[in-house]
Write a protein that binds this DNA or RNA. Structure first.
Length: 537
RNA sequence: GUCCCCAUAGUCUAACGGUUAGGACGCGGCCCUUUCAAGGCUGAAAUACGGGUUCGAUUCCCGUUGGGGGCACCA
């Protein structure tokens, strides 16, 4: 039975050297979705063989990011499985065993060339015409007895793969690139085991993939050129070569490799900025893959039904945050109030905190310039930061205790949010009590506008809102105000905008009457009075 | 240096020899509207270039240009 007839087994194999990067996340998503779509198995393997950079903490960060994205693995850390251990550092015996096999079969040989000689040879070769063509195979011709003696004498050596002399071009199948073929003469005898006894990556991955029964290797295309080298190892091991699928790179908006200066490059930063995991998964899935070229909203569950390797693109793609924002908004609008409150809890608590900490009475604050506003939006603000733990806990608890109250905020902002961290700025006014923070520009353009009669507008609305015989109902109050305004010869805009500024502090706000339903009527009247006095007296 | 890969609007993509080159984000306009959104309608916007093959090329071949990746006792 060939690999292609066997049940699918795929793996995601991150190195725990930092955060889970956007590119890594997409690789994980494709592996996961492919496993789910085919009823296969998704294996998570940690490639922690670089002691310099690999840490336990980083492993945890990556697992946490995968969990947040909703990518569950069938075998791997924490869940175990029949092919463990799932950490490369714990698998050295398997590499040893495989190397023994290769040595026995005459497919590997010891090399006594020092790193220094090799480096010198390479440097010299690079200066000549033709350049460096790989290891010159000096040690290949050392007779077995001599080699054994030198090893026994303790001479430092590495083990190299003996590329077969009569091998034709190295070929393999790639679901994205099709049939690949590489000339054999550019393949040098790669090192399998280093002088210090550790094993090289290109050797270790193949051992692992063979021993874990991986049928499809889905990974970044930075490995495309390494693949023939690895295929040689599969062949030497007598193992079946899996199907590959190499994924093109994800670049920043300027077409350059994604890096810090592009803003967020790792998954948890998107979480912290209020993106929903489903939206991020949907978005990343579409970077290099399409369902039919038409469908853009593909929730994870749908992805797990429809994902296929044959619709992966070869071309690199650019990460367009604008589109992510749009897509996140779509998911926010579709998720419904209860789920929204749960996921938005930290930001709702922050809105409460921000609103409650406002100065007493009516204050006027300068309108931020475009640049200031953009800078503020770009800055990552972690909810609860700089607040004492007890206060913060209380704010969070308030969201749980008063879930329905917070759910009522959902229709106010659901169609106005690109990401959840915009919540505090949009909803803090609900928590002002009888105080108001007036935006300076709004005061000028609405309350103090020539001929606007804003003072009259406020008086008219105040009378209606203060009259407790009127039903406390958004639509009813709005209609009463509208009628009264009409009678006074005030167009809706001239009537309602002053009220909006007085109650919400800004000429731009969520629907004001619906918002007022979440506030204390007495506070609203107090705000109107306060503003009227501050601005008109 | 060498091997390999890529190329449809600003961006993500569809079209696997025959379409008025389709969809989505973004951008413009109109409608809706007390703000901002959301929503509806609508507009501008692409086959990198040059050669072939073919009755016919986005599609196949070659070249040019422009991008990217690998070639380590890193992963």
């Amino acid at each position: 039975m060939s690999n292609q007839d066997k049940p699918v087994r795929v793996r995601f194999a991150p190195s725990p050297t930092g955060m889970l990067h956007i590119g890594g996340a997409r690789t994980a998503i494709y592996n996961w979705a492919f496993a789910r779509a085919t009823g296969g198995t998704f294996v998570l393997r940690i490639e922690d063989t670089d002691p310099e950079r690999s840490t336990e903490e980083n492993t945890q960060i990556i697992l946490r990011a995968l969990r947040w994205l909703g990518l569950d693995w069938d075998e791997g850390p924490e869940v175990g499985g029949p092919c463990g251990p799932y950490f490369q550092t714990q698998r050295t015996e398997t590499y040893e065993a495989a190397l023994e096999k290769l040595i026995e079969a005459g497919a590997a040989y010891p090399c006594f060339c020092s790193k220094e000689t090799l480096d010198a040879k390479r440097e010299a070769a690079e200066k000549t015409e033709g350049g460096y063509a790989g290891y010159d195979r000096t040690c290949r011709s050392i007779p077995a007895e001599e080699a054994a003696a030198r090893i026994a004498a303790g001479e430092p050596h590495v083990w190299r793969l003996k590329v077969p002399e009569d091998h034709g071009p190295v070929t393999f199948q790639d679901a994205v690139y099709g049939d690949m073929s590489f000339p054999i003469d550019v393949m040098d005898d790669m090192i399998l085991r280093r002088t210090d006894g550790t094993f090289t990556y290109n050797y270790a991955v193949v051992c692992d993939d063979v021993n874990m029964g991986i049928t499809h290797v889905i990974r970044g295309d930075d490995h495309l050129s390494n693949t023939p080298r690895q295929v040689l190892v599969y062949e030497a091991l007598g193992a079946e070569v899996p199907m590959f699928a190499h994924l093109s790179m994800i670049l920043g908006a300027d077409g350059k490799k994604l890096s810090k200066r592009h803003g967020a490059t790792n998954v948890e930063e998107y979480r912290d900025r209020g993106y929903l995991p489903d939206a991020l998964v949907n978005f990343l899935a579409l970077l290099g893959w399409s369902l039919d070229g038409e469908t853009t909203i593909i929730p994870p569950a749908e992805l797990c039904r429809t994902f296929s390797l044959d619709r992966i693109t070869k071309k690199h793609s650019i990460f367009d945050e604008k589109k992510l924002d749009w897509m996140n908004g779509v998911y926010i609008r579709e998720m419904g109030a209860p789920a929204w409150v749960d996921v938005a809890k930290p930001w709702l608590a922050q809105a409460n905190l921000d609103g409650s900490n406002v100065a007493d009475g009516v204050t006027v604050v300068p309108t931020p310039t475009k640049e200031e506003a953009a800078a503020a939006a770009a800055e990552l603000r972690v909810p609860g930061e700089g607040v004492d733990a007890d206060t913060w806990e209380a704010c969070l608890a308030d969201v749980d205790d008063d879930h329905e109250f917070y759910e009522a905020m959902y229709p106010l902002v659901a169609e106005r949010l690109a990401h959840l961290d915009e919540i505090p700025a949009k909803l803090a006014f609900l928590f002002w009590g009888d105080s108001v923070v007036l935006d300076e520009k709004s005061v000028q353009k609405v309350l103090l506008k020539e001929g606007a009669r804003a003072d009259e507008a406020l008086a008219i609305c105040r009378a209606i809102l203060a009259n407790d015989e009127n039903p406390w109902d958004a639509e009813a109050l709005e209609e009463l105000c509208r009628a009264a305004g009409e009678e006074a010869g005030l167009k809706p805009k001239l009537l309602f905008q002053p009220l909006r500024v007085a109650v919400c502090g800004n000429m731009v706000s969520p629907p004001q009457f619906e918002a007022m339903m979440l506030m204390d009527p007495a506070d609203i009247v107090a705000r109107i009075d306060g503003v009227a006095q501050k601005v008109f007296n």
